[in-house]
């Protein structure tokens, strides 16, 4: 799936289509005083979330140079190297025959390790059913040979679905066009393997990834990287503690305690 943020108009048809197809009732409406965003974030009820990133300039701009909002319809990236899948202790998270990342509701037990791991905040916990939820890439629709509901509903074709190779080609052409038009910051995110081995849901961005709340290639790291350092720290601590424990507790000299009177110094 390719999301071209340069032509997103923030209509949220994708959010609505996702909720409708996946029968997500949504959260209680909440007044957010800071933007047109009334969804807030990806969570157990919002598997699609249109981000409104305020870029309204402080000073007036000359015609053609203004940039008011960056819009981005966000979603689980269905990472090739998926942090969530890596840590899930129950193996509830699987890679499907479509190469997507899917949480099996019957297997998940709600430990929430995947939420701690997903670098995109794409997974939410629903306390009502005790499960972790995220975009399924409309697994049921794919099985019926239909595109995901969001891609089907997007009126500007900002969200397109198809074979990755074709989408990559289309994205390459689009970013080249934008750059030729002077949009120097236009860039593809997740198109190549530099971010989590490549993303099955990748993006064309109009600014650096951090502006959109996405880790850049340097920060796109997997949880398991910390096993080595973590266990090394444990080894150092354990070695020091065992030496200390033996020094403090070991028998010295005679076979029995010299001083067995409570309250006296050793």
């Amino acid at each position: 799936m390719f999301t071209d943020t340069s032509i997103c108009i923030g209509c949220k048809a994708c959010e609505v289509a996702c909720k409708e197809w996946n029968q997500l009732p949504g959260n209680e409406p909440e007044y957010r005083n800071d933007s047109f965003d009334n969804t807030g974030e990806l969570d157990a009820q919002n598997w699609r979330h249109v981000k409104f990133i305020d870029r309204v300039p402080e000073a007036p701009m000359t015609t053609g140079n203004g940039q008011a909002w960056l819009l981005m319809s966000d979603i689980c990236k269905h990472c090739q190297h998926a942090s969530c899948m890596e840590v899930c202790p129950t193996n509830a998270i699987i890679r499907t025959e479509f190469d997507t990342v899917y949480i099996q509701p019957d297997v998940c037990n709600g430990c929430r390790d995947c939420i701690a791991a997903c670098p995109y905040g794409a997974i939410g916990f629903n306390p009502k059913d005790g499960l972790a939820h995220k975009c399924t890439f409309c697994y049921d629709r794919l099985q019926a040979n239909m595109p995901p509901a969001c891609a089907k509903a997007c009126p500007t074709q900002s969200i397109t679905f198809g074979p990755l190779r074709e989408l990559h080609k289309k994205a390459d052409e689009r970013v080249a066009t934008l750059r030729a038009q002077g949009y120097d910051q236009a860039q593809l995110y997740g198109r190549d393997a530099s971010v989590y081995g490549g993303l099955n849901a990748f993006f064309l961005l109009m600014a650096e990834p951090e502006v959109y709340g996405l880790p850049n290639a340097r920060n796109a790291v997997l949880p398991r990287r910390n096993n080595r350092g973590g266990y090394l720290g444990v080894l150092v601590s354990a070695a020091l503690a065992m030496v200390a424990g033996i020094v403090a507790l070991r028998r010295r000299g005679s076979d029995t305690l010299q001083d067995t009177t409570p309250g006296e110094g050793s």
Binding site: A117, Y231, V234
Partner: peptide
């Protein structure tokens, strides 16, 4: 402690010291 570090959370995943 290692479990906390093997994540992408701020603080937890930024240190190797929690297990020790």
């Amino acid at each position: 402690g290692v479990l906390l570090s093997v994540s992408n959370q701020p603080v937890w995943s930024d240190t190797w010291t929690l297990g020790g």
